[in-house]
Amino acid sequence: MSSASLLTEHHETLPFQDHYLRVQHLRHAASAADKRPTLVFLHDSLGSIKLWRDFPARLALALGCHAFVYDRRGYGESAPFGPEPRTVAYLEQEALVVPAVLRAAGIEQAVLWGHSDGGTLALLTAAQEPALVAAVVTVGAHVFVEDITLAGIRRAQAHYATTDLPQRLARYHGSNTEPLFRAWTDTWLHPAFRAWNIEAYLPHIQCPVLVLQGSADEYGTAAQVEAIAKQVGGTARARLLPGLGHTPHRQSPKQVLEHSRAFLQEVVK
């Protein structure tokens, strides 16, 4: 049996609360997969199902697990944002939604693999729902605001205004593109957001945590990695990936896959 035949892919629109979410299910053929935690991928502030490319499938195959990927509300092919304006606590608020999404999808235990905003969501969810989360992998997650982060967002604003970035993002987000870009930049660059900090949640995380970040990350420094690894309540492993930027899973997927597989194989066995 080929590796491709071990995994089946299904996309659907999942009714959720008063809106809908676009989701992707990756089902592993191994019977043991039903007993293992499901790999759940949480995207970044401009991310979507499509932008993960084949990374979720490759990790699911490597670990013999099912995987679940979804566009958060306002992203990709999911419903637009609701009428309520985004607040400086939007990540804490979204972390309360993640467990409900997983339960709506029939997931009882998960390994949360999150990039950037998604990594922050993974940490917040693990802190508040320990029975649901078996392990966490973060890539480029933030637990406080740094000057380098704000500078990177200002560069993104300039690119959005002067290049074809809106058109490129629209390939993945359609009519959600403008609202999600403005929500990201306006929130992070708001003066009140400078004091945002979720380090108080970290000691409540009891599951194993792998903290990955590119050494050349244009949105964060190694201080983020150190803060997470030192303060989580459970075991933590940290890896700074030489020469890689904010999306190492796209820049060097084989390397990130191997770090993730090696860390998670004991969790999902």
Rank of each mutant, 00 (worst) to 15 (best):
T221L: 06
R86D: 04
A134D: 11
V136Y: 03
L189N: 00
L21D: 03
P130E: 01
L21V: 03
H25N: 13
N197G: 06
G245R: 14
A134E: 07
W52D: 04
A135P: 10
P208W: 08
E9M: 08
S116H: 02
G245P: 06
Q224P: 07
R36H: 01
Q17N: 09
R27S: 07
A126N: 02
Q231L: 15
V232R: 08
T87G: 07
A262I: 07
P83G: 14
S2R: 04
P179A: 03
H142Q: 10
F41A: 01
R261L: 09
A131I: 06
Y219F: 15
V268A: 06
P253E: 03
V145F: 04
V133Y: 13
K269A: 13
A32M: 14
L264S: 11
T125R: 01
D217Y: 08
Q224Y: 12
A195V: 15
P15V: 00
D18W: 00
P242R: 15
S78H: 03
H259T: 06
P56D: 00
S260M: 13
W184M: 15
G74R: 06
T125K: 05
T162S: 13
G233I: 07
S252I: 05
V137C: 09
V69F: 05
R250C: 12
G152T: 14
G118K: 00
D186V: 02
A151E: 13
R182K: 15
W188Q: 07
V111C: 00
A222Y: 03
F41G: 01
M1C: 15
E12F: 03
C207W: 07
A161Q: 15
H259L: 12
R237K: 14
P37I: 02
Q128M: 12
D54G: 02
L26G: 09
S31V: 06
V143W: 05
Y219M: 12
V98C: 08
V139C: 13
L112C: 02
Q251F: 04
S48C: 08
T163Q: 08
D164I: 03
R250G: 12
S5V: 04
L96S: 12
I49V: 13
Q17R: 09
H159G: 14
H173N: 07
D34F: 00
Y219A: 13
L212C: 09
L96F: 09
R103C: 07
A131P: 04
A238R: 09
E108G: 10
A126H: 03
A122G: 10
G233E: 06
R72C: 01
D54M: 05
L14I: 00
P253K: 05
D18Y: 04
S252D: 14
D18N: 08
H43G: 00
A60N: 03
Y201G: 10
F81M: 12
G140H: 08
V97G: 05
G47S: 00
T38K: 01
L112V: 04
S78Q: 00
G245A: 14
H190C: 06
R53P: 01
A170C: 11
A30V: 00
Y75C: 11
A158T: 14
Y75N: 04
T8I: 02
Y70T: 02
L165F: 06
V145A: 02
L257E: 14
